[in-house]
């Protein structure tokens, strides 16, 4: 028996919004430690890794490990039927071929449930090596989304250059060159507005704008985003999900031919 309950459907809606543009389907691996999903986009350029810890749920029960392959478009349809403040419960029997998603209004006067067929997906689980990143940048997630959106107008690629002075995003195309530099903030009242850079070595990497823009669909989940970079390895873009877990996107760099 698997059962997981969250106080607010809005969190699950935001999580789905954050992955459904990159992935059409995904396997939710459930164990007593929580729920995990790892999947590459169709072109195998990026990888999504979602972790939701069992202790972040209002109720969590998983007697036996189960893997639930889901069509994310179908799941999005179901979640559209929930009000943001509804409780949401996911339930499945061991070895089931369906999952039930139930929404309850705060006053319990409306209860709806949706049974969704599960899919058998080819699982290609990748081992992500432990990496000592040369640069770790933390910045407001809205600022990162704005930069990715703005620079995508000028080029398919963005060059991210991180030094101890700051982080610079550059896009060069037919129009010309756009540069956006962010310096580390001094003391700010609100932590969520700060930019911080933890640099061991300067690093310059090139990435495709369209994937970065897809990652920013996770912006509503977190006020801050963390970018971890190291020469010639995938970028990690991490959004923490408060008290529940995180979503990490890995993006393979573009490398000079």
């Amino acid at each position: 028996m698997f059962e997981a309950r969250l106080g607010q459907a809005t969190i699950l809606k935001k999580i789905l919004d954050a992955i459904k543009d990159l992935l059409t389907e995904g396997t939710f691996d459930c164990s007593d430690s929580g729920i995990q999903l790892q999947a590459m986009d169709n072109s195998h350029v990026s990888l999504v890794s979602l972790t939701l810890r069992s202790d972040g749920f209002d109720k969590f029960r998983c007697d036996r490990n189960i893997s639930m392959g889901m069509n994310l478009g179908s799941m999005a349809k179901i979640l559209k039927c929930a009000n943001n403040e509804d409780n949401v419960t996911m339930k499945a029997q061991d070895n089931a071929d369906t999952v039930t998603i139930m929404f309850e209004s705060a006053n319990q006067e409306k209860v709806s449930d949706y049974e969704m067929k599960l899919m058998n997906l080819d699982q290609e689980h990748l081992g992500i090596p432990e990496t000592e990143y040369s640069c770790v940048v933390r910045m407001p997630s809205m600022e990162f989304a704005r930069i990715c959106r703005d620079l995508a107008q000028f080029s398919e690629s963005v060059v991210i250059c991180c030094t101890k002075e700051g982080v610079k995003f550059t896009a060069s195309g037919d129009v010309g060159t756009a540069n956006i530099k962010l310096a580390q903030t001094g003391s700010v009242d609100k932590e969520e507005e700060s930019v911080s850079i933890d640099m061991q070595e300067p690093v310059t990497l090139t990435f495709a704008c369209r994937y970065l823009n897809a990652f920013t669909k996770a912006t509503p989940l977190s006020t801050q985003v963390q970018l971890s970079m190291c020469a010639d390895v995938p970028l990690v873009v991490e959004y923490a999900i408060k008290d529940l877990g995180y979503i990490r996107y890995y993006l393979a760099p573009k490398i000079e031919d």
């Binding site: 590459m40 990748l126 495709a208 995938p234």
Partner: peptide, 14 residues
């Protein structure tokens, strides 16, 4: 010209 790498060229199958 830069070449787009894939994730599989960095991360191995478990």
């Amino acid at each position: 010209q830069s070449k787009q790498m894939t994730i599989a060229s960095f991360f191995r199958k478990d």
